[in-house]
Design a protein around this nucleic acid. Sequence first.
DNA 1: TATGTGCCGTGAATCTTATTCACGAATTGT
DNA 2: ACAATTCGTGAATAAGATTCACGGCACATA
Lengths: 241, 241
Amino acid sequence: MGTKERRQREFEDREKVFLDCARDLIRDEGLLNLQMSRIAEKSEYAVGTLYKHFASKEDLLLALAAVDTEKHVSMFQRATQWKASPRDRMVAIAVADMIFVRRNPDFFRLGQYVFTEVVWKAASPERRQAMLAASDPIADVVVGIVNDAVAAGELELRDMSAEEICTGLWALSAGTHNLVHAEGVLEDFNVRDPYRLMCRHTQVMLNGYGWHPLVDVSDGAALDALIKRICNEVFDDLCSE
Amino acid sequence: MGTKERRQREFEDREKVFLDCARDLIRDEGLLNLQMSRIAEKSEYAVGTLYKHFASKEDLLLALAAVDTEKHVSMFQRATQWKASPRDRMVAIAVADMIFVRRNPDFFRLGQYVFTEVVWKAASPERRQAMLAASDPIADVVVGIVNDAVAAGELELRDMSAEEICTGLWALSAGTHNLVHAEGVLEDFNVRDPYRLMCRHTQVMLNGYGWHPLVDVSDGAALDALIKRICNEVFDDLCSE
DNA sequence: TATGTGCCGTGAATCTTATTCACGAATTGT
DNA sequence: ACAATTCGTGAATAAGATTCACGGCACATA
Protein backbone atom coordinates (compact mmCIF):
# COMPACT_ATOMS: atom_id res chain seq x y z
CA MET A 1 0.00 0.00 0.00
CA GLY A 2 1.74 3.13 -1.19
CA THR A 3 -0.73 5.36 0.59
CA LYS A 4 1.79 6.57 3.05
CA GLU A 5 4.14 7.47 0.24
CA ARG A 6 1.44 9.28 -1.67
CA ARG A 7 0.56 11.29 1.44
CA GLN A 8 4.20 12.10 1.87
CA ARG A 9 4.44 13.27 -1.71
CA GLU A 10 1.30 15.38 -1.40
CA PHE A 11 2.73 16.98 1.69
CA GLU A 12 5.92 17.89 -0.10
CA ASP A 13 4.06 19.25 -3.09
CA ARG A 14 1.99 21.41 -0.80
CA GLU A 15 5.11 22.95 0.61
CA LYS A 16 6.00 24.07 -2.88
CA VAL A 17 2.50 25.48 -3.37
CA PHE A 18 2.83 27.54 -0.21
CA LEU A 19 6.23 28.84 -1.21
CA ASP A 20 5.03 29.76 -4.69
CA CYS A 21 2.05 31.63 -3.28
CA ALA A 22 4.26 33.44 -0.82
CA ARG A 23 6.63 34.42 -3.61
CA ASP A 24 3.78 35.77 -5.71
CA LEU A 25 2.40 37.73 -2.80
CA ILE A 26 5.80 39.24 -2.07
CA ARG A 27 6.21 40.19 -5.72
CA ASP A 28 2.76 41.74 -5.92
CA GLU A 29 2.38 43.33 -2.52
CA GLY A 30 5.85 43.51 -1.04
CA LEU A 31 7.57 41.72 1.79
CA LEU A 32 6.20 44.35 4.14
CA ASN A 33 2.63 43.28 3.55
CA LEU A 34 3.11 39.54 3.58
CA GLN A 35 0.60 37.90 5.91
CA MET A 36 0.35 34.25 6.82
CA SER A 37 -3.42 34.31 6.49
CA ARG A 38 -3.14 35.66 2.96
CA ILE A 39 -0.76 32.90 1.95
CA ALA A 40 -3.24 30.38 3.32
CA GLU A 41 -6.12 32.05 1.51
CA LYS A 42 -4.29 32.24 -1.82
CA SER A 43 -3.18 28.64 -1.65
CA GLU A 44 -6.66 27.52 -0.59
CA TYR A 45 -5.54 25.84 2.59
CA ALA A 46 -6.24 26.67 6.20
CA VAL A 47 -3.83 28.68 8.29
CA GLY A 48 -3.28 25.68 10.53
CA THR A 49 -2.12 23.64 7.55
CA LEU A 50 0.41 26.29 6.70
CA TYR A 51 1.77 25.99 10.20
CA LYS A 52 2.12 22.23 9.75
CA HIS A 53 4.86 23.10 7.26
CA PHE A 54 6.51 26.14 8.73
CA ALA A 55 7.20 26.77 12.37
CA SER A 56 6.70 30.50 11.91
CA LYS A 57 6.50 33.21 9.33
CA GLU A 58 10.25 33.68 9.56
CA ASP A 59 10.69 29.99 9.00
CA LEU A 60 8.75 30.26 5.76
CA LEU A 61 10.84 33.21 4.61
CA LEU A 62 14.01 31.27 5.26
CA ALA A 63 12.65 28.33 3.28
CA LEU A 64 11.89 30.69 0.42
CA ALA A 65 15.39 32.14 0.51
CA ALA A 66 16.85 28.62 0.48
CA VAL A 67 15.03 27.83 -2.76
CA ASP A 68 16.51 30.92 -4.38
CA THR A 69 19.91 30.01 -3.09
CA GLU A 70 19.74 26.66 -4.85
CA LYS A 71 19.15 28.40 -8.17
CA HIS A 72 21.97 30.79 -7.37
CA VAL A 73 24.32 27.90 -6.70
CA SER A 74 23.42 26.13 -9.90
CA MET A 75 24.44 29.20 -11.88
CA PHE A 76 27.77 29.28 -10.10
CA GLN A 77 28.30 25.67 -10.99
CA ARG A 78 27.77 26.44 -14.65
CA ALA A 79 30.39 29.16 -14.37
CA THR A 80 32.97 26.76 -12.92
CA GLN A 81 32.38 24.16 -15.57
CA TRP A 82 33.04 26.63 -18.34
CA LYS A 83 36.05 25.72 -20.43
CA ALA A 84 38.14 28.81 -19.86
CA SER A 85 41.05 30.05 -17.79
CA PRO A 86 40.58 30.17 -14.01
CA ARG A 87 40.67 33.94 -14.11
CA ASP A 88 37.93 34.14 -16.72
CA ARG A 89 35.91 31.60 -14.76
CA MET A 90 36.22 33.76 -11.67
CA VAL A 91 34.86 36.69 -13.63
CA ALA A 92 32.11 34.36 -14.81
CA ILE A 93 31.14 33.91 -11.16
CA ALA A 94 30.66 37.65 -10.88
CA VAL A 95 28.66 37.67 -14.10
CA ALA A 96 26.53 34.79 -12.79
CA ASP A 97 25.80 36.88 -9.75
CA MET A 98 24.86 39.82 -11.92
CA ILE A 99 22.52 37.83 -14.14
CA PHE A 100 20.95 36.04 -11.21
CA VAL A 101 20.15 39.20 -9.34
CA ARG A 102 18.68 40.82 -12.41
CA ARG A 103 16.43 37.86 -12.99
CA ASN A 104 15.45 37.57 -9.34
CA PRO A 105 15.03 41.12 -8.17
CA ASP A 106 13.47 40.10 -4.87
CA PHE A 107 16.25 37.70 -3.98
CA PHE A 108 18.53 40.19 -2.39
CA ARG A 109 15.89 41.92 -0.33
CA LEU A 110 14.68 38.64 1.01
CA GLY A 111 18.19 37.39 1.64
CA GLN A 112 19.09 40.60 3.41
CA TYR A 113 16.03 40.27 5.59
CA VAL A 114 16.39 36.62 6.54
CA PHE A 115 20.03 37.03 7.55
CA THR A 116 18.96 39.70 9.97
CA GLU A 117 19.29 38.69 13.61
CA VAL A 118 15.59 39.20 14.17
CA VAL A 119 14.48 36.88 11.41
CA TRP A 120 17.32 34.37 11.60
CA LYS A 121 16.75 33.67 15.25
CA ALA A 122 13.01 33.42 14.80
CA ALA A 123 13.33 30.61 12.27
CA SER A 124 13.64 26.97 13.27
CA PRO A 125 17.12 25.47 13.67
CA GLU A 126 16.31 22.99 10.90
CA ARG A 127 15.64 25.75 8.40
CA ARG A 128 18.74 27.59 9.40
CA GLN A 129 20.71 24.45 8.87
CA ALA A 130 19.06 23.91 5.48
CA MET A 131 19.84 27.47 4.45
CA LEU A 132 23.48 27.08 5.34
CA ALA A 133 23.64 23.73 3.57
CA ALA A 134 22.12 25.30 0.45
CA SER A 135 24.79 27.98 0.28
CA ASP A 136 27.64 25.65 1.16
CA PRO A 137 28.51 24.67 -2.42
CA ILE A 138 29.17 28.31 -3.28
CA ALA A 139 32.29 28.26 -1.19
CA ASP A 140 33.48 24.98 -2.68
CA VAL A 141 33.00 26.23 -6.21
CA VAL A 142 34.86 29.49 -5.72
CA VAL A 143 37.69 28.00 -3.69
CA GLY A 144 38.02 25.41 -6.45
CA ILE A 145 38.68 28.10 -9.04
CA VAL A 146 41.35 29.69 -6.87
CA ASN A 147 43.04 26.34 -6.45
CA ASP A 148 42.93 25.75 -10.19
CA ALA A 149 44.68 29.05 -10.74
CA VAL A 150 47.35 28.15 -8.23
CA ALA A 151 47.80 24.74 -9.86
CA ALA A 152 48.13 26.42 -13.25
CA GLY A 153 50.84 28.70 -11.89
CA GLU A 154 48.71 31.75 -12.59
CA LEU A 155 48.37 32.79 -8.97
CA GLU A 156 50.74 32.65 -6.01
CA LEU A 157 49.03 32.49 -2.65
CA ARG A 158 52.09 33.69 -0.71
CA ASP A 159 50.85 33.93 2.86
CA MET A 160 47.14 34.03 2.04
CA SER A 161 44.82 31.07 1.84
CA ALA A 162 42.46 30.40 -1.05
CA GLU A 163 39.60 30.97 1.38
CA GLU A 164 40.87 34.41 2.28
CA ILE A 165 40.99 35.43 -1.36
CA CYS A 166 37.46 34.17 -1.80
CA THR A 167 36.38 36.17 1.21
CA GLY A 168 37.50 39.35 -0.51
CA LEU A 169 35.64 38.59 -3.70
CA TRP A 170 32.59 37.45 -1.81
CA ALA A 171 32.60 40.60 0.29
CA LEU A 172 32.81 42.66 -2.88
CA SER A 173 29.76 40.93 -4.26
CA ALA A 174 27.76 41.05 -1.04
CA GLY A 175 28.66 44.69 -0.55
CA THR A 176 27.61 45.59 -4.07
CA HIS A 177 24.21 44.06 -3.46
CA ASN A 178 23.98 46.16 -0.31
CA LEU A 179 24.79 49.37 -2.08
CA VAL A 180 22.41 48.67 -4.94
CA HIS A 181 19.60 48.37 -2.44
CA ALA A 182 20.66 51.18 -0.13
CA GLU A 183 18.47 54.09 -0.96
CA GLY A 184 20.17 56.88 -2.82
CA VAL A 185 23.81 55.91 -2.52
CA LEU A 186 24.49 54.90 -6.08
CA GLU A 187 22.29 57.62 -7.48
CA ASP A 188 24.41 60.16 -5.61
CA PHE A 189 27.50 58.52 -7.00
CA ASN A 190 26.08 58.56 -10.49
CA VAL A 191 26.73 54.85 -10.94
CA ARG A 192 24.58 53.64 -13.79
CA ASP A 193 25.37 49.98 -13.96
CA PRO A 194 26.51 48.77 -10.54
CA TYR A 195 26.94 45.15 -11.56
CA ARG A 196 29.15 45.99 -14.50
CA LEU A 197 31.13 48.03 -12.00
CA MET A 198 31.25 44.99 -9.71
CA CYS A 199 32.77 42.96 -12.53
CA ARG A 200 35.32 45.64 -13.04
CA HIS A 201 36.15 45.73 -9.36
CA THR A 202 36.52 41.97 -9.49
CA GLN A 203 39.15 42.44 -12.17
CA VAL A 204 40.81 45.10 -10.01
CA MET A 205 41.02 42.69 -7.10
CA LEU A 206 42.28 39.84 -9.25
CA ASN A 207 45.03 42.11 -10.56
CA GLY A 208 45.74 43.15 -7.00
CA TYR A 209 46.26 39.52 -6.04
CA GLY A 210 48.67 39.22 -8.97
CA TRP A 211 46.36 36.75 -10.68
CA HIS A 212 47.61 36.18 -14.24
CA PRO A 213 47.00 36.97 -16.95
CA LEU A 214 46.73 40.55 -15.69
CA VAL A 215 44.23 42.72 -17.51
CA ASP A 216 44.06 46.42 -18.20
CA VAL A 217 41.24 47.38 -15.84
CA SER A 218 40.73 50.71 -17.51
CA ASP A 219 39.80 48.99 -20.77
CA GLY A 220 36.03 49.14 -20.60
CA ALA A 221 35.58 47.65 -24.05
CA ALA A 222 37.55 44.54 -23.08
CA LEU A 223 35.43 44.18 -19.97
CA ASP A 224 32.22 44.43 -21.94
CA ALA A 225 33.53 41.94 -24.47
CA LEU A 226 34.34 39.44 -21.73
CA ILE A 227 30.95 39.87 -20.09
CA LYS A 228 29.28 39.38 -23.45
CA ARG A 229 31.34 36.30 -24.14
CA ILE A 230 30.39 34.83 -20.77
CA CYS A 231 26.72 35.55 -21.42
CA ASN A 232 26.93 33.82 -24.79
CA GLU A 233 29.03 30.86 -23.85
CA VAL A 234 27.81 30.13 -20.33
CA PHE A 235 24.43 31.70 -19.79
CA ASP A 236 23.12 31.74 -23.31
CA ASP A 237 19.59 30.77 -22.30
CA LEU A 238 19.41 33.37 -19.53
CA CYS A 239 20.68 36.46 -21.37
CA SER A 240 17.92 37.76 -23.55
CA GLU A 241 18.59 41.48 -23.51
CA MET B 1 9.99 83.82 29.14
CA GLY B 2 12.33 80.98 28.26
CA THR B 3 9.71 78.43 29.16
CA LYS B 4 9.18 77.37 25.62
CA GLU B 5 12.88 76.86 25.19
CA ARG B 6 13.12 74.85 28.38
CA ARG B 7 10.24 72.65 27.24
CA GLN B 8 11.93 72.21 23.93
CA ARG B 9 15.16 71.21 25.63
CA GLU B 10 13.40 68.79 27.93
CA PHE B 11 11.73 67.22 24.95
CA GLU B 12 15.04 66.76 23.18
CA ASP B 13 16.67 65.34 26.28
CA ARG B 14 13.88 62.86 26.59
CA GLU B 15 14.49 61.64 23.09
CA LYS B 16 18.01 60.82 24.14
CA VAL B 17 16.72 59.02 27.23
CA PHE B 18 14.46 56.86 25.08
CA LEU B 19 17.25 56.04 22.68
CA ASP B 20 19.63 55.17 25.50
CA CYS B 21 17.07 52.89 27.10
CA ALA B 22 16.38 51.23 23.77
CA ARG B 23 20.09 50.71 23.21
CA ASP B 24 20.48 49.13 26.65
CA LEU B 25 17.53 46.86 26.08
CA ILE B 26 18.89 45.75 22.72
CA ARG B 27 22.27 45.05 24.27
CA ASP B 28 20.77 43.08 27.16
CA GLU B 29 17.90 41.29 25.52
CA GLY B 30 18.53 41.47 21.80
CA LEU B 31 16.85 43.30 18.96
CA LEU B 32 14.44 40.41 18.66
CA ASN B 33 12.93 41.07 22.06
CA LEU B 34 12.74 44.82 21.92
CA GLN B 35 9.28 46.03 22.88
CA MET B 36 7.98 49.56 22.87
CA SER B 37 6.27 49.08 26.22
CA ARG B 38 9.52 47.95 27.79
CA ILE B 39 11.33 51.04 26.54
CA ALA B 40 8.59 53.17 28.08
CA GLU B 41 8.75 51.25 31.33
CA LYS B 42 12.53 51.44 31.58
CA SER B 43 12.60 55.15 30.84
CA GLU B 44 9.71 55.78 33.26
CA TYR B 45 7.47 57.42 30.73
CA ALA B 46 4.16 56.32 29.30
CA VAL B 47 3.90 54.51 26.00
CA GLY B 48 1.99 57.44 24.56
CA THR B 49 4.89 59.74 25.34
CA LEU B 50 7.23 57.47 23.48
CA TYR B 51 4.97 57.78 20.47
CA LYS B 52 5.16 61.55 20.70
CA HIS B 53 8.79 61.14 19.68
CA PHE B 54 8.75 58.25 17.27
CA ALA B 55 6.12 57.53 14.69
CA SER B 56 6.65 53.80 15.05
CA LYS B 57 9.01 51.22 16.41
CA GLU B 58 10.87 51.20 13.12
CA ASP B 59 11.16 54.94 13.33
CA LEU B 60 12.88 54.59 16.69
CA LEU B 61 15.27 52.00 15.33
CA LEU B 62 16.21 54.26 12.46
CA ALA B 63 16.82 57.12 14.90
CA LEU B 64 19.09 54.83 16.89
CA ALA B 65 21.01 53.83 13.79
CA ALA B 66 21.41 57.48 12.85
CA VAL B 67 23.10 58.23 16.17
CA ASP B 68 25.58 55.44 15.55
CA THR B 69 26.18 56.69 12.06
CA GLU B 70 27.19 60.09 13.38
CA LYS B 71 29.87 58.48 15.54
CA HIS B 72 30.95 56.43 12.57
CA VAL B 73 31.30 59.51 10.42
CA SER B 74 33.31 61.37 13.01
CA MET B 75 35.87 58.56 13.03
CA PHE B 76 36.13 58.76 9.26
CA GLN B 77 36.75 62.47 9.54
CA ARG B 78 39.62 61.87 11.89
CA ALA B 79 41.09 59.47 9.37
CA THR B 80 40.96 62.05 6.58
CA GLN B 81 42.58 64.72 8.68
CA TRP B 82 45.55 62.53 9.46
CA LYS B 83 48.80 63.90 8.11
CA ALA B 84 49.78 61.05 5.86
CA SER B 85 49.72 60.04 2.21
CA PRO B 86 46.33 59.64 0.57
CA ARG B 87 46.89 55.91 0.29
CA ASP B 88 47.63 55.55 3.98
CA ARG B 89 44.64 57.71 4.79
CA MET B 90 42.46 55.43 2.72
CA VAL B 91 43.72 52.48 4.73
CA ALA B 92 42.98 54.53 7.83
CA ILE B 93 39.35 54.65 6.69
CA ALA B 94 39.28 50.86 6.71
CA VAL B 95 40.93 50.82 10.12
CA ALA B 96 38.37 53.33 11.40
CA ASP B 97 35.66 50.99 10.24
CA MET B 98 37.34 48.09 12.01
CA ILE B 99 37.72 49.93 15.30
CA PHE B 100 34.23 51.34 15.15
CA VAL B 101 32.59 47.99 14.60
CA ARG B 102 34.57 46.39 17.40
CA ARG B 103 33.53 49.10 19.80
CA ASN B 104 29.91 49.04 18.66
CA PRO B 105 29.13 45.38 18.14
CA ASP B 106 25.41 46.00 17.72
CA PHE B 107 25.87 48.67 15.08
CA PHE B 108 26.01 46.40 12.12
CA ARG B 109 23.08 44.24 13.12
CA LEU B 110 20.94 47.28 13.64
CA GLY B 111 22.14 48.90 10.44
CA GLN B 112 21.49 45.73 8.51
CA TYR B 113 18.00 45.58 9.92
CA VAL B 114 16.98 49.18 9.36
CA PHE B 115 18.12 49.16 5.74
CA THR B 116 15.82 46.25 5.14
CA GLU B 117 12.84 47.06 2.96
CA VAL B 118 10.45 46.07 5.72
CA VAL B 119 11.92 48.41 8.31
CA TRP B 120 12.98 51.22 6.02
CA LYS B 121 9.52 51.66 4.57
CA ALA B 122 7.89 51.48 7.99
CA ALA B 123 9.89 54.44 9.28
CA SER B 124 8.81 58.03 8.75
CA PRO B 125 10.13 59.93 5.74
CA GLU B 126 11.75 62.44 8.10
CA ARG B 127 13.81 59.75 9.80
CA ARG B 128 14.81 58.25 6.52
CA GLN B 129 15.94 61.64 5.37
CA ALA B 130 17.87 62.17 8.61
CA MET B 131 19.54 58.79 8.27
CA LEU B 132 20.67 59.55 4.74
CA ALA B 133 21.87 62.99 5.80
CA ALA B 134 23.86 61.42 8.63
CA SER B 135 25.70 59.09 6.29
CA ASP B 136 26.19 61.66 3.57
CA PRO B 137 29.56 62.96 4.80
CA ILE B 138 31.04 59.46 4.46
CA ALA B 139 30.93 59.75 0.72
CA ASP B 140 32.45 63.24 0.72
CA VAL B 141 35.29 62.16 2.95
CA VAL B 142 36.24 59.13 0.91
CA VAL B 143 35.87 60.80 -2.46
CA GLY B 144 38.07 63.57 -1.07
CA ILE B 145 40.90 61.15 -0.41
CA VAL B 146 40.69 59.75 -3.92
CA ASN B 147 40.84 63.24 -5.35
CA ASP B 148 43.86 64.04 -3.18
CA ALA B 149 45.62 61.00 -4.58
CA VAL B 150 44.84 62.08 -8.12
CA ALA B 151 46.04 65.60 -7.41
CA ALA B 152 49.26 64.20 -5.94
CA GLY B 153 49.82 62.16 -9.11
CA GLU B 154 49.62 58.93 -7.14
CA LEU B 155 46.53 57.64 -8.89
CA GLU B 156 45.29 57.86 -12.46
CA LEU B 157 41.56 57.60 -12.84
CA ARG B 158 41.66 56.68 -16.54
CA ASP B 159 38.06 56.03 -17.43
CA MET B 160 36.80 55.56 -13.88
CA SER B 161 35.37 58.23 -11.64
CA ALA B 162 36.47 58.81 -8.05
CA GLU B 163 32.98 57.76 -7.00
CA GLU B 164 33.30 54.45 -8.77
CA ILE B 165 36.53 53.67 -6.97
CA CYS B 166 34.88 54.53 -3.68
CA THR B 167 32.01 52.24 -4.53
CA GLY B 168 34.42 49.32 -4.75
CA LEU B 169 36.03 50.06 -1.41
CA TRP B 170 32.69 50.72 0.19
CA ALA B 171 31.29 47.47 -1.14
CA LEU B 172 34.30 45.65 0.26
CA SER B 173 33.63 47.09 3.67
CA ALA B 174 29.89 46.55 3.61
CA GLY B 175 30.36 43.00 2.36
CA THR B 176 32.88 42.22 5.07
CA HIS B 177 30.37 43.30 7.71
CA ASN B 178 27.86 40.98 6.07
CA LEU B 179 30.15 38.01 6.13
CA VAL B 180 31.20 38.62 9.71
CA HIS B 181 27.60 38.43 10.76
CA ALA B 182 26.53 35.62 8.46
CA GLU B 183 26.42 32.55 10.60
CA GLY B 184 29.18 30.08 9.99
CA VAL B 185 30.73 31.42 6.80
CA LEU B 186 33.98 32.75 8.19
CA GLU B 187 34.34 29.89 10.64
CA ASP B 188 34.18 27.49 7.71
CA PHE B 189 36.78 29.58 5.95
CA ASN B 190 38.95 29.60 9.01
CA VAL B 191 39.24 33.36 8.94
CA ARG B 192 40.35 34.50 12.37
CA ASP B 193 40.49 38.23 12.00
CA PRO B 194 38.10 39.35 9.28
CA TYR B 195 38.76 43.05 9.71
CA ARG B 196 42.50 42.66 9.39
CA LEU B 197 41.68 40.72 6.25
CA MET B 198 39.48 43.58 5.11
CA CYS B 199 42.41 45.97 5.50
CA ARG B 200 44.52 43.64 3.44
CA HIS B 201 41.87 43.42 0.74
CA THR B 202 41.74 47.18 0.75
CA GLN B 203 45.45 47.19 -0.03
CA VAL B 204 44.83 44.61 -2.75
CA MET B 205 42.22 46.84 -4.37
CA LEU B 206 44.36 49.94 -4.08
CA ASN B 207 47.18 48.09 -5.80
CA GLY B 208 44.68 46.92 -8.39
CA TYR B 209 43.73 50.52 -9.13
CA GLY B 210 47.44 51.28 -9.54
CA TRP B 211 47.36 53.58 -6.53
CA HIS B 212 50.95 54.51 -5.62
CA PRO B 213 52.99 53.83 -3.68
CA LEU B 214 52.19 50.17 -4.37
CA VAL B 215 52.65 47.83 -1.42
CA ASP B 216 53.58 44.19 -1.13
CA VAL B 217 50.21 42.78 -0.12
CA SER B 218 51.73 39.52 1.01
CA ASP B 219 53.78 41.32 3.66
CA GLY B 220 51.64 40.71 6.74
CA ALA B 221 54.13 42.38 9.04
CA ALA B 222 53.99 45.62 7.07
CA LEU B 223 50.21 45.53 7.20
CA ASP B 224 50.19 45.02 10.94
CA ALA B 225 52.71 47.82 11.37
CA LEU B 226 50.56 50.20 9.37
CA ILE B 227 47.44 49.27 11.31
CA LYS B 228 49.29 49.77 14.55
CA ARG B 229 50.61 53.12 13.39
CA ILE B 230 47.12 54.26 12.46
CA CYS B 231 45.80 53.14 15.84
CA ASN B 232 48.52 55.10 17.61
CA GLU B 233 48.50 58.22 15.53
CA VAL B 234 44.82 58.59 14.70
CA PHE B 235 42.75 56.59 17.14
CA ASP B 236 44.99 56.62 20.15
CA ASP B 237 42.16 57.09 22.64
CA LEU B 238 40.04 54.34 21.11
CA CYS B 239 42.62 51.56 20.86
CA SER B 240 43.07 50.10 24.28
CA GLU B 241 43.81 46.48 23.46
C1' DT C 1 -21.16 -3.41 4.72
C1' DA C 2 -20.72 -1.75 9.52
C1' DT C 3 -17.77 -0.11 13.02
C1' DG C 4 -13.48 1.27 15.30
C1' DT C 5 -9.04 3.86 15.03
C1' DG C 6 -5.81 7.21 14.01
C1' DC C 7 -4.21 10.74 11.05
C1' DC C 8 -4.60 15.33 9.32
C1' DG C 9 -6.72 19.60 7.73
C1' DT C 10 -9.54 23.23 9.72
C1' DG C 11 -10.45 27.96 11.23
C1' DA C 12 -12.37 30.19 15.28
C1' DA C 13 -10.26 31.51 19.47
C1' DT C 14 -6.21 33.14 21.76
C1' DC C 15 -2.18 35.77 22.59
C1' DT C 16 1.16 39.16 21.79
C1' DT C 17 2.41 43.73 20.67
C1' DA C 18 2.18 47.89 18.33
C1' DT C 19 -0.52 51.91 18.15
C1' DT C 20 -4.24 55.25 19.35
C1' DC C 21 -6.77 58.74 21.71
C1' DA C 22 -9.99 60.56 25.31
C1' DC C 23 -8.82 62.29 29.59
C1' DG C 24 -6.99 65.21 33.13
C1' DA C 25 -3.05 67.59 35.18
C1' DA C 26 -0.04 71.32 34.61
C1' DT C 27 1.20 75.55 32.59
C1' DT C 28 0.34 79.89 30.24
C1' DG C 29 -2.17 84.06 29.20
C1' DT C 30 -5.50 87.67 30.54
C1' DA D 1 -8.94 83.70 39.51
C1' DC D 2 -10.32 81.60 35.42
C1' DA D 3 -10.20 80.15 30.55
C1' DA D 4 -7.24 78.22 27.09
C1' DT D 5 -3.70 75.37 25.67
C1' DT D 6 -0.25 72.07 25.89
C1' DC D 7 1.38 67.65 27.03
C1' DG D 8 1.87 63.20 29.38
C1' DT D 9 -0.92 59.17 30.45
C1' DG D 10 -2.21 54.31 30.07
C1' DA D 11 -6.42 51.73 29.23
C1' DA D 12 -8.55 50.44 25.05
C1' DT D 13 -8.11 49.06 20.35
C1' DA D 14 -6.28 46.86 16.25
C1' DA D 15 -3.65 43.85 13.59
C1' DG D 16 -1.83 39.73 12.78
C1' DA D 17 0.77 35.58 14.23
C1' DT D 18 0.02 31.28 16.37
C1' DT D 19 -2.58 27.47 18.64
C1' DC D 20 -5.44 23.51 19.34
C1' DA D 21 -9.93 21.11 20.02
C1' DC D 22 -12.80 19.40 16.63
C1' DG D 23 -14.55 16.60 12.91
C1' DG D 24 -14.06 14.29 8.54
C1' DC D 25 -11.77 10.90 5.92
C1' DA D 26 -9.14 6.74 4.81
C1' DC D 27 -7.86 2.47 6.28
C1' DA D 28 -8.24 -1.83 9.17
C1' DT D 29 -10.94 -5.37 11.01
C1' DA D 30 -14.96 -8.34 11.43
